[in-house]
Simulated assay, not measured.
Amino acid sequence: MIVSNKLLSALFGAALAALALSPVATAEPQELAEMHVEMDGCEACHEDGEPSADGAFEFEQCQSCHGTLDEMDAVHQPHEGNLMCADCHAPHDMNVGDKPTCDSCHDDGRTPESILK
């Protein structure tokens, strides 16, 4: 059977796409806080390594690396002035790659897709 170069190229491209879209297996889930500790210890987020009473210092630390909510995408922008990063991203509870959903706080059925239309 003779297989054309176009068919082989298409099959190869499909295989690469499937590989790129497949989930990457990790040995152990890692909390957001653990990842930040690897960068610069607890001081990466906490002044003197200790949590602040109101979370303001930690919020400033998030913004110093990731930017303000207003500078981020359309999902983050409406929360500027209303929430701090840890309100949704819970660094000591969430694993790297976990994403909070709208229904974590909103019970009206909104999703990122519905608000970004």
Rank of each mutant, 00 (worst) to 15 (best):
A53C: 11
D48E: 11
T68E: 12
D93Q: 11
L69M: 13
N82H: 06
G81V: 01
N95H: 13
E50L: 07
V75G: 03
N82G: 14
H79G: 09
M94H: 10
M94G: 01
S104R: 07
P91F: 05
C88W: 03
P91V: 09
C62V: 06
Q77R: 15
C88N: 04
F59W: 08
H92E: 11
C45V: 05
C45T: 03
D98P: 03
E47V: 05
E50F: 01
D98I: 06
P100G: 06
T68L: 13
C102P: 03
A90W: 03
G67F: 02
T68W: 05
S52E: 05
G97V: 07
D54G: 03
H106D: 15
E50W: 01
C102S: 08
G49R: 13
Q77H: 11
D87M: 07
S104L: 10
D54V: 00
G67Q: 06
C85E: 02
M72T: 05
Q63G: 09
H76I: 01
Q77M: 10
N82T: 03
A53K: 15
A74M: 12
C88H: 04
P100F: 05
G97F: 05
G55H: 04
A53D: 15
C85K: 01
N95Y: 12
G55V: 03
V96W: 07
L83W: 06
H66L: 14
P100V: 02
P78Y: 13
S64L: 00
P100D: 09
E60L: 09
S52G: 14
C105E: 14
D70G: 06
C65H: 08
E47R: 11
C88A: 09
C65F: 07
S64C: 00
E60Q: 14
K99V: 10
N82W: 07
M72P: 01
D98Y: 06
D54P: 02
H66D: 15
F59G: 10
G67H: 04
D48Q: 10
M94S: 14
N95D: 07
C65S: 13
D98G: 05
T101K: 09
D93W: 04
P78L: 12
A44E: 04
M84I: 09
E58G: 08
G97K: 08
G49H: 10
E50H: 00
S64H: 00
C45R: 03
C65D: 08
H106G: 09
H79M: 15
A90K: 10
V96R: 13
E43D: 11
E80K: 07
C102H: 05
H92T: 08
D54Q: 07
H106Q: 09
C45D: 02
S104V: 08
G67V: 01
G81I: 02
V96T: 12
D70V: 00
D93I: 00
D73F: 03
H79S: 15
T101E: 13
M84G: 08
H92N: 10
E43T: 04
N82R: 11
H46K: 15
F57H: 15
H46W: 02
P91Q: 07
E80I: 02
L69R: 01
V96I: 11
A86P: 01
C102W: 04
H106A: 13
F59Y: 13
